[in-house]
Amino acid sequence: MHSHAFDRYHHKHSFVHNLDPRVKVAATVAFILSNALLPDGAWVAFLAAYVFMLAANVGSGLGLGFTFRRSFIALPFALAAVTVLFSIAGAPVASFQLLRWNIVVTDAGLARFMSIVIRSWLSVQMAILLVATTEFPKIVHALRQLRVPAILTVIISFLYRYLFVLADEAMRLMRARASRSAITSSGKGGGSAPWRARVAGNMAGQLFLRSYERSDRVYNAMLSRGYTGELRIMQARQFRANDWLMICILLLCLAFIQIVGRML
């Protein structure tokens, strides 16, 4: 498998691409936090946040609707919030009969549900933009510079580095299984579900052993190249005056959104 299969980075030279990764990570988290802080039903503020989002999209040179296309990934989870529609007291908006229950949707419930979905939808788009405009190793490096413990960031960068290799290994195992499992035209395959589960279990065990042995080889290779327990990374980007200016502007925008959310 090519390493690009998992990668979400879109190479470009744009304003957003050229920002310091720390600025982008901090701004993304601040944007999500700002959404979480907005009260329910602050529609104007949600709209302002969406405009902020669109501006970031344009600044990335990826197009106005770039994040929109991939933004529905978190929507199935909205199902978890459906119950607020009828569990918050308020004026009834609609009612319907479900089996033997009479379900009443209230206006307060509807506002809360919409607010939850919008918050989630806005937040996920900014996260999509972050990985589309920043190479993953740079995000991890930015996390390290933002004081995430070194051991965690190093494990994450190793995970990222070997993800492709082990995903390949998993695909090989699945291809081997598929090539030994005939399926009739009616769509029926052999074996009971527990038997299939056992096969999958054996594959997981096999994958574990291969990974474990690989980690030994990798460790030995690292030792032979002078590894002393610390990873060195090139090109630590300097934090320029421009970056400070940018983070101030972004925070001011978010503060404005908060004020709008509380006033209107």
Binding site: L159, L163, L166, A167, A193, A200, M203, V218
Partner: peptide, 30 residues
Amino acid sequence: EKQVPLMGIMAAFIFAAQMLNFPVAGGTSG
């Protein structure tokens, strides 16, 4: 110092192992 390669690759193992699935009835998989 062995922690870094071992843990990193084991994390990748968990990630890859989550891809392994087996068909159960009705198009669902475990």
